[in-house]
Design a protein around this nucleic acid. Structure first.
Length: 800
RNA sequence: GCCGAAGUGGCGGAAUGGUAGACGCACAAGACUCAAAAUCUUGCGUAGGCAACUACAUGAGGGUUCGAGUCCCUCCUUCGGUACCA
């Protein structure tokens, strides 16, 4: 069989018959399966994409035969740095590069035989698409969820671009791996923090794997504690209050010093009262130069400077305590100031040891000469006035009550999740629908003027100082204010990579609408996404961002469901043949187009799913793929075993039923590897039996169809069927009256002794009689039976 | 450090607490062939035995159970994620 020929043939037939077209408002039950749409990068897709898309591909193919109206769409996440970097490298305008890359990838996907509904293809860089991305931004701005603020941002000197926290994890630029530094800049933020609690709480309702939920919970990082006001005193006079955040208000009696972040505003405010200002300023400069990465790396060695001239007063004990400035306290979390309890916090302990500050234990149990005692489960309060004798838990409660009653502090919940830094100083992104007018200030572009089109320009390379190249396009930047008609300028930054992908699953439900981002009735029919499969790497960024946007659109009445994705699964990586992550530098990258050329798309798809459990990482093997190739060829030769029997051979009913159940269940549970192995077992058995009816063969082919669709269709045609498999229906199990023989394991004292072939559902007495009559087994009964454990059709265990 | 996942033949990997190693790869033998490839058949955890069989085996050590790869406890290793988060 010529694979490339028949694969092309069936792809054309499916195309012509429009079998993958999702029908709006059909009476059939709907199924919306989603995969993460790819970046149209210059190198095309890699084998990991094929695996990532194959789960929903198989499920969609099966669901269609099972009577569902399936929406399985595809599109392009085309804005952003990868595309732009490619364009710069090859000196092609990003628009043209994007179109070329999309065409290339489209070919790859079609050649692989994916059953996407191409009529719903979307492109985030299409102005009819980003019009609505801008529209959503306008809504966010109107509701006060988008704001511009001066902030320290992660800046990559090499890319000359400001990065989000997620793109600069570990202080390393996501794109070019160079060191990120801190830079102050006016940037756009989205108030995702306002949604933290809902994003967290809704997780309980969602069908996501536990590890995905855990990662999201961790990322949101909720912590419950208290804010406490400490007075600060200058020259013996109370000057101000210094607010701190703590989760350990039970240890207030143990506070022996305070620490503020280097960027803390109190330094500027009381500069004239600080006697060692030079030293402090020097330290601040030092801290600014350090990237966040350095600050983390140097965690073993605490640095800091005592602030001379200002002291704090412990609100509980009224003791005067010193204040330090140190970079182990971050301005971005809590209030940027902490109360330090060296006896019960390892960081404070290290600092106190180095700077010779008093360490005062307030919980019984540890030895503070050696280390901080941080166990909060055991131990009771000491040296703590009215808390003495209480457990940590009770002390926390009582202190919180005391703080509230005396107006010294209050309960406070903090989140580690920061507001979303929502812009880039790059060309290839959605322009902001924002205009700056000297008279009117920041003005939204009116809705009827959307989209704000990205101008075609020659110099799209990033300009210096982290500005967008758009800033140099005067005829675009200069505009009139929509409010007063006066001269005004456009925002020249563009939206980040994650903008377009935060709502694309909505557009698929109504991709060509020019009145609204998607018709509400259609959203109601198709939404939410029933099953979303993607990579672990998108669990904390894309997945949370899009949950946030969906929640917002739900709140303003645009979308009829609060959560976008009912169910989420993830695929494991395809590793290189050497067991390492595929990378160009290791030279272990598998080119799947070569695989298609030598094995065909069907064998490639099947092997990717057969090689391991779908959700775990597994190495590619150029040897093992032959197993799938041989399997397909074995199926092809099965035609010689076909007989003229009409229907299903009685003695094949059980086998076929088991196969139908197994394959159906396994597909639904992402157990593709065992589904394929069951299909192989079936074939092996038929080769033993040496006969098979046509009905049986067609049902087998139908079960094989989701994995090897072209081949199955071809075989079905070869044996004379006129109906295409893509239009047929999933096999159903038949009533099975045969008396089944099973092999029952016989254990004596928990050790397997023999297997007896017995009829299904045999009683315990009958089986004991069989053992009695069995010359080999009866010897074990000589000493009498103490106990019998019989699990019907599973096992019998005799205790003698 | 913390959170999560995992550790099973020569290899990729199967096993709702109930026959450990399904299925596949590799390997070996036989059939077919002048021969090779392909294909078909058979074998294939380790040790002992001609064999029937026996013993031992799922990272290590304990425990629960009639029965543990699976559940519990204590470790070790690997891989992901995350972190001076107060």
């Amino acid at each position: 069989m010529n694979f490339s020929e028949i694969e092309k043939k069936w792809q054309d037939i499916w195309d012509k018959e429009k079998v993958f077209k999702a029908v709006d408002f059909s009476d059939k039950p709907k199924f919306y399966g989603l995969i993460e749409f790819p970046y149209p990068s210059g190198t095309g897709l890699h084998i990991g994409h094929i695996k990532a898309f194959s789960s929903m591909e198989v499920i969609s193919r099966a669901k269609r035969l099972q009577g569902y109206n399936v929406l399985f769409p595809i599109g392009w996440d085309a804005f952003g740095l990868p595309t732009e970097n490619y364009a710069i490298k090859h000196n092609i305008p990003p628009r043209i590069a994007t179109d070329e890359n999309i065409n290339n990838i489209k070919k790859q996907l079609k050649k692989s035989g994916f059953s996407f509904d191409w009529s719903r293809e979307i492109d985030t860089t299409d102005e009819n698409y980003y019009k609505w991305t801008q529209w959503i931004f306008c809504k966010l701005y109107e509701k006060g969820l988008a704001y511009k603020s001066k902030a320290f941002v992660n800046y990559c000197p090499s890319c000359d671009v400001i990065l989000s926290n997620e793109e600069s994890q570990g202080g390393i630029c996501d794109r070019c791996s160079s060191q990120v530094v801190q830079k102050e800049k006016e940037v756009w933020f989205l108030k995702i923090r306002d949604y933290a609690e809902r994003l967290l709480n809704n997780l309980d309702k969602l069908d996501f794997p536990e590890r995905v939920k855990e990662e999201q919970r961790h990322w949101i990082g909720k912590s419950e504690g208290a804010e406490v006001d400490f007075k600060i005193s200058i020259n013996g006079k109370i000057a101000d209050t210094l607010k701190i955040y703590t989760t350990r208000c039970d240890t207030l009696f143990g506070v022996t010093f305070m620490v503020v972040a280097p960027e803390h505003p109190m330094i500027k405010k009381y500069a004239k009262d600080i006697k060692n200002l030079d030293k402090i300023k020097e330290y601040q400069e030092q801290a600014k130069r350090k990237s966040e990465f350095d600050r983390v790396q140097l965690n073993k060695d605490k640095t800091g400077v005592l602030i001379n001239g200002i002291v704090a007063i412990n609100p509980i004990t009224n003791e005067e305590i010193p204040i330090f400035i140190a970079d182990y306290v971050m301005m971005g979390y809590g209030t940027g100031a902490i109360m330090a309890v060296p006896a019960h916090d390892t960081r404070d302990y290290d600092f106190a040891k180095k700077f010779n500050v008093a360490i005062k234990p307030v919980i019984k149990g540890g030895d503070v000469d050696k280390e901080a005692f941080t166990d909060i489960e055991s131990g009771e309060m000491i040296n703590s006035g009215f808390l003495n004798g209480l457990s940590v838990k009770d002390a926390k409660e009582k202190m919180l009550q005391f703080l509230t009653e005396n107006k010294i502090g209050n309960k406070k919940i903090n989140y580690q999740m920061k507001d979303w830094a929502f812009n880039r100083q790059r060309y290839w992104g959605e322009p902001f629908p924002i205009i700056y007018c000297d008279k009117c200030g920041t003005v939204l572009v009116p809705y009827e003027d959307l989209p704000v089109k990205l101008p075609e320009i020659k110099n799209f390379k990033p300009s210096k100082h982290g500005e967008s190249p758009l800033a140099e396009v005067e005829e675009w930047v200069n505009c009139t204010c929509p409010k007063c008609g006066g001269k005004a300028k456009r925002e020249t930054d563009t939206m980040p990579q994650w903008a377009g992908s935060s709502w694309y699953y909505l557009r698929y439900m109504d991709p060509h609408n020019d009145k609204t981002l998607a018709d509400r009735d259609k959203l109601n029919y198709w939404g939410p996404v029933d099953w979303y499969n993607g990579g672990m790497e998108h669990v904390t960024r894309h997945l949370i961002y899009s949950r946030f946007w969906n929640m917002f659109l739900y709140d303003i009445g645009v979308v009829p469901f609060e959560e976008p994705y009912k169910k989420r699964t993830t695929q494991g990586l395809v590793l290189g043949e050497d067991g390492n992550k595929m990378s160009k530098s290791l030279g272990n990258v598998v080119d799947f187009t070569e695989i298609i050329d030598s094995y065909g798309a069907d064998v490639m798809r099947m092997y990717i799913l057969f090689m391991a459990d779908y959700e775990s990482a597994a190495p590619w093997s150029s040897k093992n793929i032959n197993g799938c190739k041989r399997f397909v060829e074995r199926v092809e030769r099965m035609t010689s075993l076909l007989d003229d029997y009409d229907g299903v051979h009685k003695e094949h009913i059980t086998m076929l039923n088991e196969l139908i159940n197994k394959v159906s269940f396994d597909i639904e549970n992402l157990k593709f590897n065992t589904a394929i192995s069951a299909l192989m077992t079936f074939v092996n058995t038929v080769y033993q039996d040496k006969y098979l009816s046509k009905t049986e063969f067609v049902e087998f082919l139908t079960l094989l169809y989701p994995f090897a669709p072209h081949f199955s269709e071809e075989m079905n045609e070869i044996i004379g069927n006129k109906t295409y498999l893509c239009k047929s229906s999933w096999p159903k199990v038949r009533e099975d009256n045969s008396k089944k023989q099973i092999k029952l394991p016989i254990q004596v004292n928990g050790k397997l002794k023999d297997l007896l072939v017995v009829e299904e559902n045999i009683s315990q007495d009958e089986i004991l009689k069989l053992i009695q009559d069995n010359s080999k087994l009866s010897q074990y009964l000589a000493g009498g039976i103490k106990k019998v454990i019989y699990v019907k059709n599973k096992i019998i265990n005799l205790i003698v």
